[in-house]
Amino acid sequence: MTADLGFAAFVERNRPRYQLYAGARLPAESGPSAVVNAVPESVREGWEWLLRQPCPAADVWQELSLRAGRQADRTVPHEPTINSLYGQLPTGCADSVLLCRRLGFGIEEAAELMGAEPSTVEAALAFARRVLPHLAEEEHL
């Protein structure tokens, strides 16, 4: 029962932010909500196991990012800038840029959502600025 409540709280807290992320990566007609809804269903069975892992949020984020990426690969690009971002950067870096630069999350919130350390998100953003210098000049993607 406690694990079920913990799972429900985790999903309730993160679903709106997951929806923002999936909505930024995917066109509405390709089903960002379906991607977001599929993630809790896929981790529900293993929730107790996930709770024993070093960072459950990181495992859930990885599942979301993977599903969103697969769906993005099967759809017509809706925002070339975002597709280019994922084509030129490792996924974790692109996710950090999308969350912080496009969606306006702070470093701490993006790190918490991805199950990463804030220093990891900062390093990803610095790497992205080196690889894609125009990012430093753009207010939003």
Rank of each mutant, 00 (worst) to 15 (best):
L135R: 05
Y18W: 15
G115M: 07
I107N: 12
P32Q: 00
S30W: 06
S42Y: 03
P27I: 04
E112R: 14
S84C: 09
G31L: 00
E112D: 14
F127K: 15
V121S: 01
R13P: 10
E108K: 05
A57V: 03
T81C: 02
A124E: 11
L132R: 15
R101W: 06
Q53M: 15
D95G: 01
G23Y: 04
R129S: 11
T120V: 12
G106W: 02
Q62L: 12
R101H: 08
E45G: 08
P16E: 10
H78F: 04
A110N: 06
S33P: 01
L66G: 11
P118T: 10
R25H: 01
A136I: 00
L135K: 03
V43A: 04
F127E: 14
V121H: 09
L64P: 06
V60K: 07
A126C: 10
E109H: 12
A24Q: 04
E45V: 01
D59E: 15
A57S: 14
R17Y: 03
V97H: 06
G23D: 11
Q88I: 00
H78I: 07
E137H: 09
R15K: 06
I82A: 03
E41G: 11
C55V: 13
A28Y: 01
P32N: 01
C100G: 00
L113C: 03
H134R: 13
S42L: 13
E109N: 07
A22T: 08
E122T: 15
C93T: 14
R102G: 13
A57C: 05
V35H: 04
S30P: 03
E112F: 09
D73G: 11
P16W: 09
M114D: 01
P40W: 04
V36G: 05
T120S: 14
Q19T: 15
V121K: 07
I82E: 01
S119V: 11
S33H: 05
A123F: 11
L64M: 09
A128R: 08
H134S: 11
P54D: 12
L89S: 09
N14W: 12
I82C: 05
V43F: 03
Q19Y: 06
E79Q: 13
L98K: 02
C100R: 10
E122M: 11
H134E: 15
C100S: 10
A72S: 12
A22R: 07
A123M: 13
P77K: 05
D59P: 00
R129H: 14
T120G: 04
C55S: 14
S84Y: 11
E45D: 11
R67S: 05
A72F: 00
E63S: 10
Q53S: 15
H140G: 02
A72I: 08
T91P: 08
Q88R: 14
T81F: 00
A111G: 00
L98M: 02
S96N: 06
F105T: 02
E29R: 12
D59V: 13
P54W: 00
E41D: 11
S33L: 07
L64C: 07
H140N: 09
L103I: 05
Y86Q: 04
